[in-house]
C-alpha cells in the first residue's frame, strides 16, 4: 500500500487507453449507430411518404372514376337528347314530306279535273252538235252555229 511509480505507470496506461478509445473505438461505433439511426429515420420517413402518396393516389383515382362516371352519364344524356332530336327531325321532315306529297297530289287532281273539264268542254260542242243533228235530223252547219256553240261551251 505504498505510493510509488505504479502511479506513473497507471497514468501512462490510462492516457494510452483513452487515446486508443478516442481514435479507434469511439468514432466507428458512434458513426455506425448514428448512420443506422438516420437510416431508420429515413425509412420511417419514406414509409410515411409512401402512405401519403398512396392516399393521394387513391383519392385521385376515386375522383377520376367519379369524373368518368359523370362524363359517361353526360354523354348518354346527350346521346339520348340527340336521338330524340333526330326522331323529332325525322318526324317533322316526314310530316313535311307528307304535306308536300298531299299538296302535289291535290295539284295533280286539280290539273286532271281541269284537263277533264277542258276535254269535256271541247267535246261538248261536238256532242251538242251531234245531239242537235240527231234531234233535228238535219245537219247543222257548224260554221253557222259556231258562235252559239262556243258561247255554250264557255258557259260550261
Amino acid at each position: 500500500m505504498n505510493i510509488n511509480a505504479t502511479l506513473i505507470g497507471q497514468i501512462i496506461a490510462f492516457a494510452v487507453f483513452v487515446w486508443f478509445c478516442m481514435k479507434f473505438v469511439w468514432p466507428p461505433l458512434i458513426n455506425a449507430m448514428q448512420e443506422r439511426a438516420k437510416k431508420i429515420a429515413d425509412g420511417l420517413d419514406a414509409a410515411n411518404r409512401a402512405e401519403r402518396d398512396l392516399k393521394l393516389a387513391q383519392e385521385k383515382a376515386t375522383s377520376q372514376m367519379r369524373e368518368a362516371k359523370e362524363q359517361a352519364a353526360q354523354i348518354i344524356e346527350q346521346a339520348n337528347k340527340r336521338a330524340n332530336q333526330i326522331i323529332d327531325e325525322a318526324k317533322e321532315s316526314a310530316r313535311q314530306e307528307g304535306e308536300r306529297l298531299k299538296v302535289a297530289a291535290q295539284a295533280d287532281i286539280e290539273q286532271e279535273v281541269n284537263r277533264a273539264k277542258e276535254n269535256l268542254r271541247l267535246q261538248v260542242s261536238t256532242l251538242a252538235v251531234a245531239g242537235a243533228s240527231k234531234i233535228l235530223e238535219t245537219s247543222i252547219d257548224v260554221e253557222k252555229h259556231n258562235a252559239l256553240l262556243n258561247k255554250l261551251a264557255e258557259e260550261l
Binding site: A5, G9, W26
Partner: peptide
C-alpha cells in the same frame, strides 16, 4: 520508496484495459 512498481496491480490493470480495448476495437 517511490521508485518501485506494483507488478501485479499494473499488470492486471493494463492487461484488463488492453483486453477490453481489444474487444471494443474488434467490435468497432
Amino acid at each position: 520508496g517511490f521508485m518501485a512498481l506494483h507488478l501485479d496491480s499494473l499488470g492486471w490493470s493494463i492487461g484488463l484495459g488492453a483486453l477490453i480495448m481489444f474487444l471494443f476495437w474488434r467490435a468497432a
